[in-house]
Amino acid sequence: MSRIAISNHQGVLWASAATPLGGTAALELETAVIEAANVGRYPLTVLDMAAIPAVDSAGVGALVRLQTALATKGRRLILANPQPAVADELRLRDLYGFFQVSRDIRPDMEPEELLLARDA
C-alpha cells in the first residue's frame, strides 16, 4: 500500500495512511507499523488517523492487535486525530477507552506532551 507513511519525529514513530482502514489495507498498515516499531525499538508510536475516513471490523481488529503487540513489549500507541466516523466506530464497539486517543497532536510536539494528550 503506497498510502502508508512512516517516519521518525524526535524519537517517536509516526505512521499515517490515506485510505479507509479495512481488509488488506488494515493488515498492511498493522504489519508496517509493527515492523517499524520493532526495528527502531520506538517506545512510542503515533498512528495519525486524520486521513482515514472510515474503519470496518478488519480495521478495528488490526488496531486492537497493533495496540496489544506494542503493549506486550512495553510500548505505547496513540491514535491521533481520528475522523468522527472512526471515533464513533470505536465507541460503538466499546473500544474507545482501550486506546489512547488524542485530537490535535502534531509531529512537532515533544514525546512527553504526546503522552499527556488524551481525549476525555
Rank of each mutant, 00 (worst) to 15 (best):
L27I: 08
E89F: 07
H9I: 02
A58D: 13
S102F: 01
R3W: 11
L114V: 01
Q100L: 01
G22R: 07
I4C: 04
A26L: 01
R103L: 11
L21Q: 04
G22I: 04
G40D: 04
V64Y: 10
T19D: 11
A50W: 12
L95R: 01
R65L: 14
R65Q: 09
S102Y: 02
I6A: 11
F98P: 08
A5H: 03
E89W: 01
I52Y: 12
I78C: 09
L92W: 04
L13W: 00
L79W: 07
R75Q: 15
P82A: 04
R3K: 08
A36R: 02
I34R: 13
N8R: 00
A26Q: 02
M49C: 15
I105L: 12
R106A: 11
N8Q: 02
L116H: 08
A18P: 15
F99H: 06
P107I: 03
V64F: 10
Q67Y: 00
V12C: 12
E113G: 12
V60I: 07
W14N: 12
A71T: 06
D94R: 14
A51E: 10
L44R: 08
V55F: 11
L44N: 09
A80Q: 02
A58P: 14
E30R: 07
P53T: 05
F99W: 03
E28K: 12
A15P: 12
R3H: 11
A51N: 07
A15I: 09
I78F: 07
A32L: 02
L116E: 13
T68K: 13
A50M: 10
A69P: 12
M1A: 12
G11D: 00
